[in-house]
């Protein structure tokens, strides 16, 4: 198979498949969690949109909770990491270009240099997380092999992204690897612990509701 056909497959049907898998997987996660409230009725009864949002925003704001302030470095690293991982990919020129070529849609993007630095920051953050898992006894005790695998799966698209952008050795092939690893990661989100991306809003929302609406106490 030539590079071109491989590219066409990965950027075409596989990408569509990955995005569909991601969206359907997330919907499935949410539907399942809601359905499981059948034997846990209070979750729905106590749900309170205002307090749910209060808690969610609080926990999405850097240093807004006691525990975030107790771990200043971890908090900094976590926020940079999540911005780089969740928000940045939408604002990369090469990514926008692919959408533009397929659908004619375009939007402002970030300067490439910034993206490169952010990608390095994401990789450093992953090294930091790995270090925590290896060094802190309370984290090491909880860590399972899948946690290491997840770190690796997240690292791959960023590492290959930098590689391809820099045009290092065999950059065309690495570009394919970049796209492929991104697609794998996307599908993995709803089916692994990375699902916390969607479930965060549900668990935090519920606890915010229970604390705000019933317990009249702060949950941060």
């Amino acid at each position: 198979m030539t590079l071109q056909t491989l590219y066409a497959i990965i950027a075409g049907p596989l990408a569509v498949l990955a995005i569909t898998g991601f969206v359907l997987g997330c919907v499935y996660r949410i539907v399942m969690a809601v359905r499981q409230t059948a034997s846990d009725r209070m979750v729905i009864e106590y749900f309170h949109p205002r307090y749910a949002l209060r808690s969610i925003f609080r926990w999405l704001t850097p240093y807004a909770t006691v525990n975030m302030r107790r771990h200043p470095i971890m908090t900094l690293v976590t926020f940079i990491f999540h911005l780089g991982m969740v928000v940045m990919p939408f604002f990369i020129f090469a990514h926008m270009l692919m959408v533009y070529e397929a659908f004619g849609l375009s939007w402002p993007t970030l300067p490439d240099v910034f993206v490169e630095w952010m990608s390095w920051a994401v990789l450093l953050a992953l090294v930091f997380f790995l270090g925590r898992r290896l060094i802190l006894p309370e984290v090491r005790y909880l860590t399972t092999p899948s946690d290491y695998l997840i770190l690796f799966m997240v690292a791959l698209p960023f590492f290959t992204g930098i590689w391809a952008y820099k045009g290092w050795w065999a950059a065309e092939w690495v570009t394919l690897l970049h796209m492929l690893s991104g697609e794998v990661l996307l599908v993995a989100i709803p089916f692994t612990r990375l699902g916390h991306m969607v479930l965060f809003f549900m668990t935090r929302g519920y606890m915010g509701s229970e604390f705000g609406g019933i317990r009249h106490a702060r949950d941060w």
Partner: peptide, 17 residues
């Protein structure tokens, strides 16, 4: 048990925080 058990078990990222 229902939603909370399953969702908590699935969500915990083993961060130790």
């Amino acid at each position: 048990a229902g939603a909370r058990l399953k969702t908590y078990a699935r969500t915990c990222v083993h961060c130790g925080l």
